[in-house]
C-alpha cells in the first residue's frame, strides 16, 4: 500500500474545544511534507491527533492502512515520532532511551543502518557518540533533538514525523538529518512530515508543503511549485507570506 497516512475530515482539540478542523491529508511513500504555520496555527495539535496523543473530535486517521482509533497499538507501529526534546525521559542515558524504544518496537538498538540510509555510524555522524552514556538531563536542546531523531528512525517505520525537531540542530547535524530524510524517501519505503518554522529550508528538503492557518489547511504546494519557488532565493517565503496576508484579509 502506497498511502502511509490518510487523515479524512480530521477535527481535534483540547477538552472539547476544536483546535484543528476539516483536515484532509494523504501521504504516500516517497513524500516529504513540509508543515508550515504560525505559532498557534494547529501544527502541533495536528501531529498530536495523527499520533494518537489527543482524541479525534471528528474524522479518521489511518496509518499504513490501519485505523488509529480502532487499533491504536497496531497503527503506532507505522510511524516514528521524534519526541519534543523536553519530553524525553531525562534520567535515562541516550543509549538507554534508544534501548527502551527499540525494545518496544521489537528491534535491535543498533537497527539504524540499512540500505536506505547513508553509510557510516549515524550516532557519530550526528555528534551523539560522546554523549550517549550520559543522562539526557545533561543534554543541550540540540543533543536531545538528535537522540529523539535517532529513536524515531528505529525499526524503520514507514512514516517519520519531526515536529520542529530540526530547529534545534547544529548545521552539521541538520545537514546529516536532511541527508537521511532524503535518502529514506528516495528509497520509496518511507514518507516524512517535517513541521518547521524555517520556511526557506522547505523547498530544498520537501516535495510537498502545506500551510496551516487558524486550525485548517490554508494552502498547499506540490513538488513542481516547490521546485519553481526554490529556484529564486526568497520566492517561497514570499509565496507563504502572500498566503498568510490573503488569509488575514479574508
Amino acid at each position: 500500500m502506497d498511502e502511509v497516512l490518510a487523515a479524512r475530515e480530521l477535527s481535534a482539540g483540547y477538552r472539547g474545544r476544536i483546535a484543528v478542523r476539516g483536515i484532509d491529508l494523504s501521504l504516500r511513500r516517497g513524500d516529504i511534507l513540509g508543515l508550515l504555520g504560525a505559532n498557534g496555527s494547529g501544527k502541533s495539535t495536528l501531529i498530536r491527533a495523527v499520533t494518537g496523543q489527543i482524541p479525534l473530535i471528528g474524522g479518521s486517521v489511518a496509518i499504513d492502512g490501519i485505523d488509529l482509533a480502532a487499533s491504536p497499538e497496531r497503527a503506532k507501529t507505522g510511524f516514528g515520532l521524534a519526541i519534543e526534546p523536553h519530553e524525553l525521559p531525562a534520567p535515562l542515558s541516550g543509549r538507554q532511551y534508544i534501548e527502551l524504544v527499540a525494545s518496544i518496537r521489537g528491534c535491535a538498538p543498533s537497527d539504524l543502518r540499512s540500505g536506505d540510509l547513508p553509510s557510516g555510524d549515524l550516532l557519530e555522524r550526528l555528534g551523539l557518540g560522546r554523549w550517549i552514556d550520559r543522562p539526557i538531563a545533561e543534554y543541550s536542546l540540540g543533543t536531545r533533538a538528535k537522540a529523539a531523531i535517532v529513536a524515531a528512525l528505529l525499526g524503520r517505520p514507514p512514516l517519520l514525523i519531526f515536529d520542529e525537531t530540526l530547529n534545534g540542530l547544529d548545521p552539521v547535524a541538520a545537514w546529516e538529518v536532511k541527508r537521511v530524510i532524503a535518502a529514506l524517501c528516495a528509497s520509496g519505503r518511507h514518507a516524512v512530515i517535517v513541521s518547521t518554522h524555517v520556511v526557506e529550508a522547505v523547498p530544498a528538503l520537501c516535495n510537498r508543503a502545506v500551510l496551516m492557518v487558524d486550525g485548517s489547511l490554508s494552502r498547499s504546494w506540490d513538488a513542481a511549485q516547490l521546485a519553481e519557488a526554490g529556484r529564486v532565493p526568497g520566492a517561497f517565503e514570499e509565496s507563504v507570506m502572500q498566503a498568510l496576508r490573503m488569509r488575514a484579509a479574508a
Binding site: T51, Q53, K76, F79, L81, P89, V101, I104
Partner: peptide, 13 residues
C-alpha cells in the same frame, strides 16, 4: 512514565 508521549505514541498498550 504512563503520562509520557514516549510511551503513548509507541506501539505498546
Amino acid at each position: 512514565p504512563l503520562g509520557s508521549p514516549v510511551l503513548r505514541t509507541a506501539p505498546i498498550g
